[in-house]
């Protein structure tokens, strides 16, 4: 464990909690892409099946359970409890255009052809594009609530911090995982446009609205 991975995990946890609290307290999921949340639930489910097969540490197990639990709770709030506030018209990204190519890529490019490994690889590739429906929805509505921008900032920051974690692990442990690194780079690059708007607008107290 290193400072980048720990702050990355905490940033990820913060994002998940911010979103869950935003929906729960405002009793509304307006502006939130339910499709992205479904993709995140799939990401955690396919990645954390090793909860059933191996124990790494209390931290590892508890964080995984929190992530999976919050992901499903968020999907439940969006599609069941507060479904009346779900903005389906603007959440129109065709997720099959993500899942099919990612599934194919996971079968073609992986570290080994074992089921858990293929699922882990699928999860890594899917996570790198899972935010696209959310970013697409914001581009369609032309704006985002400030709390939603804080959620996205923490979510984007987490994988950026993981990139530093991988530099650290390569330098000090000689460890690197090309699949995770390339997917993490793609994932972080997808946030660059948002990061620019967040820093130049939201941090100056303005509302995030498009076109910039």
């Amino acid at each position: 464990m290193n400072v980048f991975r720990l702050t990355g995990d905490l940033s990820h946890l913060a994002a998940i909690i911010i979103l869950l609290l935003k929906i729960w307290k405002s009793r509304s999921c307006a502006g939130i892409s339910g499709k992205s949340q479904i993709l995140f639930a799939i990401v955690f489910t396919t990645r954390y099946l090793d909860l059933l097969t191996s124990f790494i540490s209390l931290y590892n197990t508890s964080m995984k359970l929190i992530y999976v639990g919050c992901a499903y709770a968020t999907v439940y709030l969006i599609y069941v409890k507060f479904r009346a506030t779900y903005d389906g018209n603007h959440d129109s990204f065709r997720v099959e255009f993500l899942i099919v190519p990612v599934g194919g890529l996971a079968v073609l490019i992986n570290h080994s052809f074992a089921p858990l490994e293929i699922l882990w690889t699928f999860s890594i590739y899917l996570e790198s594009v899972a935010i696209l429906p959310q970013l697409f929805m914001i581009s369609k509505t032309g704006e985002a609530e400030t709390i939603t921008t804080h959620y996205l900032f923490c979510l984007g920051l987490y994988r950026a911090l993981y990139l530093f974690n991988w530099v650290w692990r390569f330098y000090f442990e000689g460890f690197f995982d090309m699949i995770a690194i390339v997917a993490g780079l793609v994932q972080t690059v997808l946030y660059c446009d948002f990061f620019y708007l967040y820093v130049t607008k939201v941090l100056k107290g303005k509302k995030l609205s498009l076109p910039a």
């Binding site: 995990d9 090793d50 790494i56 992530y67 490994e117 882990w120 993981y162 460890f175 995982d177 995770a180």
Partner: peptide, 10 residues
């Protein structure tokens, strides 16, 4: 293995 040590990441 190299892969296993990746698995300790979330």
């Amino acid at each position: 293995s190299l892969r296993d040590s990746a698995k300790d990441e979330l």
